[in-house]
Design a protein around this nucleic acid. Structure first.
Lengths: 334, 334
DNA sequence: AGACGAGCTGCAAACGTTTGCAAAGCTGGT
DNA sequence: ACCAGCTTTGCAAACGTTTGCAGCTCGTCT
């Protein structure tokens, strides 16, 4: 910038003002400076600007993976969420800083906040870190979370109403005459626990003959879920439906069912959760509860920017949408 | 940091050294300072550090989408590439800055370089911006590109050997008795053009009766590709196979074929390109040329870090791997 | 003609670190 | 007791911007 100033024969402050379209600088002068700058391919150094201005025009997206070792970003849910966030953030003129947090993760939020790399933070999934987030909400740094809604939280959350959605899924299975419904997933993850609560609710109100809740604990990676379901099948306890905590688990469960000769949906109906695109292409196609990630990403960014601007914001719970496909409820395609 | 220094009764420079594990500071002193810092949750401000140190510990991943309007990051290819890059970059202790570049994109590379937001840049796909990249290679800023290899380029590229892979795909179709093979894709994109070159090569060496090359120009979004293929079918020119420039196009083409009553692979064999996971789940499953994105991401980051360290690096061409599935070559599953 | 204000521009401080160099304290050898 | 040399700490500059304030040049009004 000093060079540009010298070339234009003015002080750096004038150059700075010209580049930031300040009304304080005369039009002719501004144009002369802009011309020189673009001729020399000059662009202001963002680091220095950030330091001085105290903001970075960047939002951090952080993905805490406390509960899973193998679960990578290749998980379609994350991939789609990231894509939508990238679109949304870019569109609003911000940069996007992506961060994965792996165990051991002591003080991760603390560090991210204190580093001040970004003007705000979007956390994807509470994982098992609700307490950490709760603590961070007393910080200055604005952040929003994608995940589950609990009564007590002091930070804004955007996400599907997991209890309602879990109930919806289970009721759909009940409606199709299923009475022995398995829940497959890991309820120690808060979001999953909420889905499981909905499942229990629905069972409790189910017709006579509805079997009590049965939880098959399964991790979220395809292989782990496959093995869990296979192991359960080995126990020879009869069941006629599976409500899987995520589509990835559901698809793995379907593989396991097929491998042990069960027909879907005739012997076992399956319903998933997430609405990833893959579900429309597996055979049979997967009935599921879809989350509107596009809208979710939009809301996350909206809320975060409002918080950055100092406004108070409230959490948003979106409704899950039932997609009826072949694995429960829809006729098989020809 | 000034606060911490005051609390410890030392000068800020000592604190700075203690936090960066400099051997210049006495062990007892370092520990005392570290303790105070962690008690107060102090972490050095990264912006200031970056400004002073002249590096950001961040790599930029930029996605130029010159050629497509609708193509978003939700495209599985991008999603998977991003995921792998995020893993790789995070693992190496760097941050990842994600940037989409949309038209009009005059001077985008210039700007990204001059902004100095990152220590290096990874560009995903040349799109139609080969010249821009060529020009940028004369800059100080280290960058690497995922994409196609051309003789003349002065920047390092990692990518599949598109010509070889295109030949491989076409030969596979020829081997299975197909003689009227369509290429579906947009050859104005450099990478696609190379795949198309391989297709032409293979046809030129095909057996007697091999029909000449026929290009169906199709954009990379599912809908656009679907319409292009449907339009071509409408022309009633006979064909018995499709080589699609990407899996997304291939899957759309299969939809179009199904919609107009063609059986796959009996009437028309289909082969794709990319090896996205979706291909294993569509019906019939998609034969394709897989790219090893995991290794690609690893190489990209490796090369970039070497370049940042000042080493000279060479481009890498990986071989595409033929995945034989039902849409050409493998028996249909039961 | 002088005063006042509007419109521009320059000056210099500040943002929060890192780091070369100087200075101070200590050890041990003569 | 003095000095050399090593270890540890402090000082201050520098990184490249932005911005409040002061100052200058005009034009306009009284």
């Amino acid at each position: 910038m000093a060079d540009i100033a010298r070339l234009a024969g003015v002080h750096v402050s004038t150059v700075s003002r010209a580049l930031s379209d300040s009304p304080l600088v005369e039009k002719a002068m501004r144009e002369r400076i802009l011309k020189i700058a673009s001729q020399h391919g000059y662009v202001a150094n963002s680091t220095a600007r950030n330091l001085r201005a105290g903001r970075t025009q960047t939002l951090s997206v952080v993905i805490p993976l406390a509960h899973e070792r193998g679960q990578e970003l290749t998980d379609p849910f994350f991939a789609y969420m990231l894509s939508h966030l990238a679109d949304e953030i870019t569109q609003r003129g911000y940069g996007m800083h992506l961060q994965k947090v792996l165990p051991p993760m002591q003080g991760w939020m603390q560090r991210i906040v204190a580093e001040r790399r970004a003007d705000g933070i979007i956390v994807i999934g509470q994982s098992t870190e609700h307490d950490t987030l709760e603590r961070a909400s007393r910080t200055q740094m604005p952040f929003v979370v994608w995940g589950g809604h609990f009564g007590a939280q002091h930070y804004p959350v955007v996400g599907t109403d997991n209890v309602q959605a879990g109930r919806l899924a289970t009721e759909h299975l009940l409606t199709h005459g299923r009475r022995r419904i398995l829940f497959v997933g890991d309820p120690s993850i808060p979001e999953i626990r909420l889905r499981c609560d909905g499942y229990r609710d629905a069972l409790a109100q189910g017709p006579r003959g509805t079997a009590p809740a049965t939880i098959v604990k399964a991790h979220m990676t395809p292989d782990a879920a496959y093995r869990s379901v296979l192991a359960h099948i080995g126990k020879r306890k009869p069941f006629d439906a599976i409500f899987a905590a995520t589509d990835i688990i559901a698809i793995s469960a379907m593989r396991a069912l097929a491998a042990s000769g069960r027909r879907i949906p005739d012997d076992v109906a399956v319903i998933g959760f997430d609405g990833i695109e893959l579900g429309a292409h597996v055979h049979p196609t997967l009935t599921t509860i879809a989350q509107d990630l596009n809208r979710g990403a939009q809301l996350l960014v909206d809320l975060l920017l409002k918080r950055i601007a100092g406004e108070a914001v409230a959490s948003v719970a979106m409704n899950g949408e039932l997609l009826v496909r072949e694995s429960c409820g829809a006729a098989a395609r020809t």
